[in-house]
Design a protein around this nucleic acid. Structure first.
Lengths: 233, 233
DNA sequence: AGTCCAACTGCCATTATTTGTCAGTTGAGT
DNA sequence: ACTCAACTGACAAATAATGGCAGTTGGACT
């Protein structure tokens, strides 16, 4: 195996976010431990965020993927259009993440002869979508980590309520963002407009995916409902 | 210089889309021609789309960028959200490009512990935006390459007209796509709704960026107009 | 058909890099 | 004080990369 291949392999191994010992990696790749130390050195020198702690092991600081990959010109356009839309449409966290992507990709894509971006877009349709998105980073974290949330919700007919929910998915509808969740108060799936969520905080307890209460169940439920509507019309 | 560095350098050099001779590359990187042949071999073996033609030189088949880069988890989400939106919102060419990006990125991002996508989105708001986008690939090509187009346009008040235009930029407005262009008929900037373009074909002649007729001029013009509106309100 | 060009190939001696071994040191936790 | 595992330096052995050379090949042009 080539050295460069091995470096990629090491990243693959470490990328699962668990702790790894140089000894184990060495064994897996059939090289000596010393070589692994050297390899990790060069990886770190090349910007891969691996943390080594003496007496502990190696850990990847943040989830990365770093495949050298090639995008076609159209794919590049799709990418930058998408990031531009996200910048307009989503909350600040995602927005700056999108900037990050553009920066990382653009840096390398820029020195082409002619790569004028072929699009732009109007802003006013999006302004509404940006309102009241301050909860989104927390919502995303809750979805990722399975945290139950307590929310104060003001429904469209101005009814206020407090609920404990299991956040499943945020949805973008062109004008507004909603949160699909399992509502423990109503014992059913509910979609909440994010701009109508008055307050939102972790309850401290978390949840596991549970049959009948997962996002897949919800999507199936919605699909069935749409079918019924079609039948009756 | 390390071999791996040199390989990256070669890609950088070849990426300008022009023709390159192994001799020149060798000189630039201060290695022998033989080495360059070997390097190109390994690049091709690694999937870099370099075409070598005997008696001619090397050419990069499609514009690529291939930096090994690392994205944070949020950046990954921004990326996939953006691509999902593009898939809903844009024409088939961009749509499949977006799929391509997702495939390339997702492949490497998948074996994380927990990376459920935290969002999805409703479709009905976007359906309108997808109508009548069959011209878009041609429009993008015209913008990139500076091709004049002849179009049949049906304005919103049902007035039909034929024009020769210099396409400058496509714009996404949340519900519809428009094309900003310099109209040679009206001698001014015009925005056309793409779903109202009945027919569209290259005239065969092309145009160079010309002072007063570029996209930057148009954007400045629009910005000034908006300022005036603010003043008068 | 012949000629030119530059990509390509195979071979081999030379040079550079990578590797393993070994004998340490360091820092954190127990 | 002890253990663990990351780290470091040195050196010889193994491996890979390189340059030079003498070809071959395919396309384009005359």
């Amino acid at each position: 195996m080539q050295r460069s291949e091995r470096l990629a392999e090491i990243v693959e191994i470490v990328r699962d976010g668990r702790l790894h010992l140089a000894r184990d990696i060495a064994e897996a790749l059939e090289v000596s431990v010393r070589t692994i130390y050297r390899d990790i050195d060069t990886l770190v020198a090349n910007g891969v965020p691996i943390d080594g702690e003496r007496g502990v092991g190696y850990l990847l600081r943040e989830p990365v993927f770093l495949p050298p990959m090639s995008l076609s010109l159209v794919e590049l356009e799709a990418l930058s259009l998408g990031m531009a839309i996200v910048q307009e449409v989503a909350d600040e966290e995602l927005q700056s993440a999108a900037s990050g992507v553009i920066a990382k990709v653009g840096e390398h894509a820029s020195n082409r002869r002619n790569a004028p971006k072929s699009w732009g877009f109007g802003l006013y349709e999006f302004e509404r979508a940006r309102e009241g998105l301050s909860h989104m980073p927390l919502l995303r974290r809750a979805i990722r980590e399975g945290l139950k949330l307590r929310i104060d919700y003001l429904s469209l007919d101005e009814q206020s309520s407090k609920r404990t929910i299991r956040p499943l998915q945020t949805d973008y509808w062109g004008k507004v963002w909603t949160l699909s969740a399992w509502c423990e108060l109503r014992r059913g799936f509910r979609a909440f407009r994010i701009d109508r969520i008055q307050m939102c905080e972790p309850t401290g307890s978390s949840f596991q995916p549970e049959a009948g209460k997962t996002i897949e169940d919800y999507l199936r439920h919605v699909a069935e409902q749409m079918d019924r509507e079609k039948d009756s019309s």
